[in-house]
Design a protein around this nucleic acid. Structure first.
Length: 736
DNA sequence: CTAGGGTTAG
């Protein structure tokens, strides 16, 4: 028997190349069987060559056979397949469908649509019931609502609207575009639902966050006698995970056992994830140890579980004993640290990774690490990554572009962020939104709004995040009129329903501008319950405009929603201090002490030569502490001789002695960081500081003066925005 | 000769 272990030289080659009509005789069948047995690209190419020689390639049916192997086999490439396709003189419908199918899986599903259009123009065929599932799958991958809707229309017109395969793919499509209502309408109208119909709808509901509906359907299956399978259970477990319902998860496990559903790798992984998300790493570990087959997902899930619990050592020990060290697992650890507010630890892992030789950093490594750099303001590491991306000639996709823009913006280098933004070819909604956010946090409100409109010209639809960012820009720059207009257009013009964040932004815009009555009225008219952030914004405005009465109301509303929110009390106490109500301040302090609420300690960090130094107020743990304090004394003396008077209302605590007050202010973490920056960085370099809370008024005035007296640029990022101090001025124009 | 649904990280 001929197999491919036999050299391909023995291929039959007697067919006359002149004759283009090739019969399906035995010899052809041999070629087809060889195609099926191909295990690598070389063999495939040899068969291709042979078929060209013999003319078999010019027979549409035979060409389709070869083409299928080119397009769908794991060892071939789509690029090659495409070349083969373009050589086929008259591809048949099967061949067209296969190419559409191949692209629908590929990283470029849009090509499916392009091929489909070509087919309509160039071929004599109409799409059939096989074409649409592939095509609709591509539309789902693209999340392009309009495109899929057009296909749905064609399905109906071509009378394919009762094919269960086509309809199932439409359920999946609508669900992945977030149109759960449409998906459900398709679902209920299917006459003979099969298990895939149910599964598609269940996963659709799970992914759309409608867990109750998903579980309702799961029970509905039983009622209609459709037996759930592995995929059903994956969906149901995923719902448990997202609801964090461990009890139900355990019930599902026994259901799986009782119904004899075979636990395959994916189902086991889904169950691991359920246990981890529901907080039982113990159960996960037992299952993990019993699993015969484990893949990268299993390991990653475990590592992620331990890392999120803060058991980083255990997480790392998993990483060390993994059979193959894959970058995905390292990425999981980095991103777990990053998202759990431990960016420094994330960077430590990244450094370890840089040293290990057998793992190659990938795009996700960079995305997660850049996010940590952004959090910390660690621009040196961020720049290293940027350099490396260039060196590796890694293509800047939208994910990476967004991360880089975010990192540079948050590290204070807005120009670099803009440079990247202007240089990339592709900009999706996230890229635009990140750039708008960057401009906003640097106080370039006008530019942010301009960019928002340029985004419309580029035909990119803004989403909820875009609006949060652009409204934020308005609030930082005091653009009340623009903010009002944008907010009012959100739903009618852009179809984005304003959420809690947008309302909070609007209250912030109005409140900061001193339009307190309008802000209150705005809150009263809100169609959704005002969230804590809405009251927080009002409270913040009360601080600026010294409105004690309203502040008290806002604060109590805020505490109703978030009793643990110490920030609210701190803010209120600041307002009391600012208006000289020291009795109220001390009463509040007592209340905070009694309830065990503590002010989040202010902390400033500064990166010098790739190392981040952290300072708390009054901190003397730094090795250069002595030098820092003497620098601070020098600064204070210089400030005083230039006529500066401390504004003591910025103090939270009631401190009796006047000079104590002054001292406490002088020990604020940002001042320590600036002093350290002055002694440890090159005078030509700006001093870059990141503060976890908002900068206090006194520190703000002092920073302005230092920038002038020492002729140094200071970039201070606080919780909300950037302050560029230079020549005695701040970029926020004291509006913050 | 072809098809649709599933787990992790972002």
């Amino acid at each position: 028997m001929e197999t491919l272990s036999t050299p391909l030289v023995s291929l039959p080659s007697q067919t006359n190349p002149e004759s283009r009509t090739v019969k399906n005789d035995g010899r052809n069948r041999l070629v087809f069987s060889l195609i099926d047995q191909c295990t690598n690209r070389r063999q495939l190419k040899q068969i291709h060559a042979h078929m060209l020689r013999t003319g078999l390639f010019f027979d549409a049916y035979s060409a389709s056979k070869l083409f299928t192997a080119c397009a769908l086999s794991s060892f071939s490439s789509l690029e090659y397949a495409r070349k083969v396709f373009d050589e086929i003189p008259e591809p048949n419908l099967y061949t067209w469908n296969t190419l559409i199918r191949a692209y629908s899986w590929s990283p470029k599903p849009i090509e499916s649509v392009e091929i489909f259009l070509r087919m309509l123009c160039e071929s004599p065929y109409f799409p059939n019931k096989f074409t649409f599932p592939f095509l609709i799958k591509a539309a789902a991958e693209l999340s392009r609502s309009r495109v899929g809707q057009v296909f749905h229309g064609m399905v109906v017109k071509l009378s394919l609207g009762d094919d269960v395969f086509v309809l199932n793919s439409l359920i999946h499509f609508y669900a992945s575009c977030g149109d759960l209502d449409f998906a459900y309408q398709v679902f209920v109208r299917i006459g003979e639902k099969d298990v895939v119909s149910w599964n598609s709808m269940i996963s659709g509901f799970v992914q759309g966050g409608c867990f109750d509906k998903a579980l309702e359907l799961f029970r509905g299956m039983e009622a209609e006698n459709v037996k759930p399978n592995v995929v059903t259970m994956v969906g149901v477990l995923s719902a448990c995970a997202k609801m964090k319902d461990l009890e139900f998860g355990r019930w599902v496990r026994s259901y799986i056992e009782q119904n004899g559903i075979k636990m395959d790798l994916t189902l086991s992984n889904a169950m691991l994830d359920m246990y981890v998300k529901c907080g039982s790493v113990e159960d996960a570990k037992i299952l993990f140890d019993r699993m015969e087959e484990k893949d990268i997902v299993s390991w990653t899930t475990m590592i992620d579980g331990y890392a999120k619990l803060g058991e980083y050592d255990v997480a790392k020990s998993f990483l060390d004993v993994m059979p193959t060290q894959e970058i995905a697992t390292w990425n999981a650890l980095i991103s777990a640290y990053d998202q759990n507010g431990k960016p420094q630890e994330a960077l430590a892992i990244f450094h370890e990774l840089q040293l290990s030789e057998n793992v190659n950093l990938d795009e996700l490594t960079f995305v997660s690490t850049l996010s940590s750099c952004a959090q910390l303001g660690a621009m040196d590491v961020g720049e290293w990554i940027h350099e490396n991306i260039k060196k590796q000639r890694m293509k800047l996709n939208c994910h990476l572009t967004t991360s880089l823009i975010d990192m540079y913006s948050k590290c204070g280098n807005l120009e670099k962020a803009l440079e990247i933004f202007n240089s990339v070819e592709r900009r999706d909604v996230f890229v635009w939104s990140a750039m708008i956010a960057g401009l906003a946090m640097h106080g370039r409100g006008r530019a942010a709004i301009d960019l928002f409109f340029r985004m419309q010209e580029a035909k990119v639809k803004p989403n909820a995040v875009t609006f949060t960012n652009v409204l934020c820009a308005c609030s930082h720059t005091g653009l009340v009129e623009e903010g009002r207009m944008l907010f009012n257009q959100m739903e009618p013009v852009y179809g984005v329903v304003p959420g809690a964040k947008h309302y909070a932004c609007m209250v912030d815009i109005l409140g900061r501008a001193g339009l307190m009555e309008e802000a209150v009225e705005f809150i009263e008219k809100m169609p959704i319950t005002p969230s804590a952030s809405v009251w927080g914004a009002l409270l913040g405005a009360c601080k600026i405009h010294e409105n004690v009465e309203l502040a008290e109301q806002a604060c109590s509303r805020l505490l109703e929603l978030e009793p643990e929110n110490h920030g609210a009390l701190v803010l209120l106490s600041n307002i009391y201090a600012k208006t000289g109500k020291w009795d109220n301040v001390s009463e509040l302090r007592k209340r905070m002490r009694v309830s065990g609420l503590q002010k989040e300690p202010g902390c400033s960090s500064i990166e010098v030569n790739g190392t981040t130094h952290k300072f708390l107020a009054g901190d003397n743990s730094h090795p250069l502490s002595k030098e820092i304090y003497s620098k601070l004394d020098e600064i204070v003396a210089k400030l005083k001789s230039s006529g500066y008077v401390t504004n003591k209302s910025h103090l939270l605590q009631l401190i009796d002695e006047e000079n104590m007050k002054e001292q406490a202010l002088n020990l604020h973490s940002e001042k320590l960081a600036i002093a350290f920056g002055l002694i440890s960085t090159n005078p030509s370099q700006p001093i870059r500081i990141v503060k976890n809370l908002r900068v206090c008024g006194d520190c703000h005035s002092v920073a302005k003066l230092i920038s002038k007296l020492y002729d140094r640029e200071i970039l201070l990022r606080d919780r909300y925005r950037f302050h560029h101090f230079s020549g005695g001025y701040c970029s926020c124009m004291d509006y913050w």
